[in-house]
């Protein structure tokens, strides 16, 4: 007889396929986290919900993915907090350098009330369900192809790639480098040929884009923790049965826990991968780190009129 087996086995559930798009490459924490989400969700719904993952930005980049979510082309898409700027100021607070002490502090904040608050606000402001947060494993570090950099002073005269964002440019200029906007796909050749000398980025995306072949020096400054977020189209979510919706939320929580556990560990592997390629790492001393921090915090003023003041305080509070 014809079809319908899968549906019957799962009781009265209707079989649904969810299309998910993200930009990470195989083997990276974000990639593995989405695989985990798929596995958990399919297991919990006994296959009545399946997830088809398109990775490595083959379907959409971060901002395109969000647009495709909004017009119902995709069901689930991943985007970094800094790539949400065209749509909302909601996540701008993540772009404040040194707002988070370290990655674990970010996890603590996002696991708590504030994380929940972001999920609710995202639904209000964007009409999208924010399912969970994904950590690329580290904060962004200062890296370049020219020389060892210990303090911001050492950056003088170096050209640093930024996105064409005035805030990112202001940040890099404040540190002492010359901000040079270059499209992400041209960054590799721009570094290789010396159009730019460096950038401020996370290991995850450096390795994804092979930049460790052309980067020679990393200074472990930390600073900005550009997190990724998994968003779901509201209609796609509402169409699911209550049990399926519950399964999505549970799988999302499991995926986030899994990510927060593996990402910092995998960051060490990615770091090793960079070292194997010949990249030299420098860990600033306490005094040096204080210099980075002091200069970076000076650009907070550029944002503050677009961020609720109490939010910054509450995020700082929640880390203690």
């Amino acid at each position: 007889d014809d079809g319908g087996q899968a549906g019957e086995e799962a009781g009265t559930e209707q079989a649904v396929e969810l299309v998910l798009s993200h930009t990470a490459a195989p083997g990276t924490p974000i990639y593995l986290t989405y695989e985990k989400f798929k596995e958990e969700l399919e297991e919990r719904t006994e296959g009545s919900v399946t997830v088809r993952i398109h990775h490595s930005a083959t379907l959409a980049g971060d901002t395109q993915g969000i647009e495709m979510l909004q017009n119902g082309t995709l069901d689930i898409a991943s985007a970094a907090t800094n790539n949400m700027a065209p749509f909302t100021d909601l996540f701008l607070v993540f772009d404040l350098p040194y707002i988070f002490e370290d990655v674990y502090a970010t996890h603590k904040v996002l696991n708590g009330d504030i994380g929940q608050e972001f999920k609710e606000k995202a639904e209000e402001e964007l009409g999208l369900k924010l399912l969970f947060f994904l950590d690329p494993g580290t904060q962004r570090d200062v890296m370049n192809s020219k020389r060892e950099v210990r303090v911001p002073e050492d950056l003088r005269g170096l050209r640093f790639r930024t996105a064409e964002s005035p805030i990112e440019m202001a940040y890099v200029e404040a540190l002492g480098a010359v901000a040079t906007p270059i499209t992400w796909v041209e960054v590799y050749s721009a570094l290789e040929q010396g159009v730019v000398d460096g950038l401020v980025q996370q290991f995850h995306w450096v390795v994804t884009a092979n930049l460790h072949e052309v980067i020679r020096y990393v200074t472990e400054t930390g600073g900005i923790h550009a997190m990724h977020m998994a968003f779901m189209n509201k209609d796609s979510f509402d169409k699911l049965s209550e049990a399926q919706q519950q399964a999505v939320l549970e799988a999302a929580q499991v995926a986030q826990d899994y990510n927060f556990e593996i990402a910092p560990k995998m960051a060490d592997e990615m770091k090793q991968q960079m070292i194997d390629e010949g990249v030299q790492f420098y860990t600033p001393t306490e005094e040096e780190l204080a210099q980075w921090r002091e200069i970076s915090v000076s650009i907070w003023d550029l944002f503050t009129d677009r961020i609720p003041e109490d939010l910054i305080e509450r995020i700082q509070e929640a880390q203690r």
Binding site: S165, P181, I182
Partner: peptide, 14 residues
Amino acid sequence: LRYLFNTGLSWPEE
């Protein structure tokens, strides 16, 4: 601007 004045603008690329 980049080579004569060692500076850049955010808007030309966009």
